[in-house]
Amino acid sequence: MAQFLQLALSGIAIGCVYALVALGFVLIYKATETVNFAQGDVMMLGGFFAYTATALMGWPYWAGIVFALAVMAIFGMAAERIVLRPVLGQAQFTVVMVTIGVGYVMRGVVTMTPGWGTDTYKIATPFAEKVVNIGGAAISLEQLMIIVMTAALCAVLFAFFRFTRIGIAMQATSQNQLAAYYMGIPVARVNTLIWGISAAVATFAGILLAPITFVHANMGFIGLKAFPAAVVGGFGSIPGAIVGGLIIGLVESFSGFYLPEGFKDIAAYIVVLLVLMFKPSGLFGEKLRKKV
């Protein structure tokens, strides 16, 4: 039982990270109908900024988080404004290639930056090496904090999209841009802001992931797990991204223990295939049937 609980909690912890990266995918997809394949690399860059603030500049952990979130939000907005907006309206394929390109460039630039490079770094957290005992299972405080902080972020985002003027305007824009314009919503500015939020969410994921995998130039490949998470949840659904992330995390954790070696790495994709077979629009997907 204790072992089961331990596996479940570590599955949920890593699932939270998948969920946040998936959330970044979904936010941008809902707003601009673009899949940002650089999302994992945005997370990676965010991790590097957090590392820079805490390790190189000696800032406390929480200040480092705020710093990285702010820098990356600006980065996300700048990326939308400078790189994405000029190709908006082009074929989907063009836009997707641009985001893949941006990801490559980011990885390249990080490895070339003095002080960053190709090494693996650690972000010191205030909860390192502490263990909490829950129902006989020994859970590292770091894993527990991933879950707590993800829950807190989700609560903030929920309140933002549900209750604030700009959050509701964002929802409206994602449903119908043309109509949003004539409600007086500055659609272009809203989309820029979405990219900023999405980059900040990815950065948060990177900071949470740092104690588990450390910060390195290729940590963005976790996006390959977050993408299935978004698909399982139904691409375009915010709660779907969270649930999808948790499912992928749990399946991975359990299959790594109970199934033969190797299954852990493909478990996520098997789940995607099953979901797509039985529920093609994903668990929370909106059925988009155009009425004529």
Binding site: Q175, N176, A179, Y181, Y182, G184
Partner: peptide
């Protein structure tokens, strides 16, 4: 002016093919 400014000025429009927020 940018199109979102017309609402501020006090001009509203409807569309021939109806543009609503469908999932609301």
């Amino acid at each position: 002016l940018a199109p979102h400014r017309v609402a501020n000025l006090g001009i509203a429009r409807t569309f021939q093919n109806i543009e609503l927020f469908e999932h609301a």
